[in-house]
């Protein structure tokens, strides 16, 4: 227990300022402020892998590390699409995931905001369309915003979420 506590103390709080990436702290602070002003509560995300190579998943997971500390600013991942404000979809949509993606989307409450993550989600990426792939996410469900990159860096994902909060939730 002593080792655990002393490691915690030594590590300190890493969230601000992030040592290498200079953009991240700015985005995180802005996101927290906007969430408070616009939404007035936490933003709930649901992620669906519709056929990705798992690269995008690694960077989405990184959002929860202490540097980006996404949950700390009021964005949390939820287990059910029924609880989600925003759906993150990765991958080209494989034909084997087409139905599952549609059902997930249908289960979301309005306004059903969708962000397609990564080059594959945005345009089909290197896999394109084929007998097994429907290509970009927008071919299957309506998409409000895309974040390109292979995989997109956490800061790019943060900026994408920030833009969505500003443009899609500001009326509500």
């Amino acid at each position: 227990m002593f080792d655990t506590l002393s490691t915690m103390l030594r590590t300190g709080i890493l969230t601000e300022p992030a040592p290498v990436s200079t953009e991240a702290p700015v985005v995180i602070e802005t996101l927290q402020k906007d969430l408070r002003n616009i939404l007035g509560r936490a933003l709930c995300l649901r992620h669906v892998d519709a056929g990705s190579c798992n690269g995008c998943e690694l960077e989405i997971q990184a959002l929860n590390n202490p540097y980006y500390n996404l949950e700390g600013v009021g964005v949390k991942f939820v287990a059910s699409p029924r609880h989600a404000d925003l759906l993150l979809v990765t991958g080209p949509v494989s034909v084997n995931m087409e139905e599952a993606l549609r059902r997930t989307y249908d289960a979301m409450p309005d306004p059903k905001i969708v962000m397609a993550v990564g080059d594959c989600g945005a345009c089909g990426g290197i896999f394109g369309t084929s007998y097994a792939s429907r290509g970009r996410v927008a071919n299957i469900v309506p998409v409000n915003h895309t974040v390109s990159g292979c995989p997109p860096e956490p800061t790019a994902l943060l900026r994408g979420i920030l833009q969505i909060v500003r443009s899609k939730f500001s009326d509500s």
Binding site: S52, S94, A100
Partner: peptide
């Protein structure tokens, strides 16, 4: 098999 995206054919 859910993420099968036809890589061999691609």
């Amino acid at each position: 098999g859910y993420t099968h995206k036809g890589i061999a054919k691609r």
